[in-house]
């Protein structure tokens, strides 16, 4: 058996075992880790199939972004408080596994009895090396024959981003924060109430400019800048 086949079998074996573990695990976080192992092995298989670029993209997008997001959501949803999800209803389970086995048998028969016939294309190992490698080859093909699909994909991604923003927006029925922040002030040094424009005139001798566009008001006397409640009432009566 060639070393290539051996390596392939090893990689795909691990991928299949961990994929099976993914659906068997009780804890969803464990499932996610099993899926990471599967994806990394699949990426290695991609490299064997002369798709280095896709292998790296697979890792960046699937394991680096999508699964991290899934883990993020899993952690936000505290697993302890949730009911036991693993056990589906027995009927469901029997039906699911049964269907899987039937489908696997069907595909196995198809793979073993039929042969795919097609014209070999120009992108052999040497063909790719001629243009500089897998990335360059994909670039050439992608940007010559698939311009429209790229644009469409970009649109889909944009729409998805907007959709996610829409879904993730805060609840509308959020209670307004209590209005304690808008109280009248009794200090002359402070702007009064919510009317932010009305700043009492202060002589420049009292103001000390500070970094960050702030001023400090320098009081020389205990009576400065302070009005007693009686003063306030008088002011309101006038």
């Amino acid at each position: 058996m060639a070393a290539e086949v051996l390596v392939f079998n090893l990689l795909s074996g691990i991928a299949i075992v961990s994929a099976a573990a993914m659906i068997m695990m009780r804890n969803p976080v464990h499932s996610a880790i099993a899926l990471v192992i599967t994806f990394v092995n699949v990426a290695a298989v991609f490299i064997m199939l002369r798709a280095e670029f896709l292998a790296v993209v697979q890792i960046i997008v699937y394991t680096g972004a999508i699964l991290v997001l899934i883990l993020f959501v899993l952690m936000l949803v505290n697993p302890d408080e949730l009911p036991d999800f693993h056990g589906a209803r027995p009927m469901q389970q029997i039906f699911g596994f049964g269907l899987g086995i039937i489908l696997l048998a069907e595909i196995a028969v198809a793979i073993l009895t039929r042969t795919v016939v097609a014209e070999p294309g120009p992108w052999t190992e040497d063909g790719m090396a001629a243009v500089g490698g897998n990335v360059q080859a994909i670039g050439q093909v992608l940007y010559s024959g698939y311009v429209l699909p790229i644009q469409a994909t970009a649109l889909v991604l944009l729409a998805a981003t907007i959709g996610a923003l829409f879904l993730g927006r805060p609840d509308e029925d959020e209670e307004p924060t209590p209005s304690r922040r808008t109280v009248a002030t009794i200090s002359l040094a402070h702007t009064r109430g919510s009317d932010q424009d009305e700043i009492p005139a202060l002589s420049s001798a009292n103001i000390k400019h500070e970094a960050g566009d702030r001023d400090l008001i320098m009081a020389r006397d205990a009576d400065e800048f302070t009005s007693t409640p009686e003063d306030d009432q008088k002011g309101q009566q006038e």
């Binding site: 702007t191 009081a219 020389r220």
Partner: peptide, 15 residues
């Protein structure tokens, strides 16, 4: 002199 802040936030207390 006694310095007085104008906004009442953490930065004012620092100043």
């Amino acid at each position: 002199e006694v310095p007085l802040g104008t906004r009442g936030d953490v930065y004012d207390r620092y100043l």
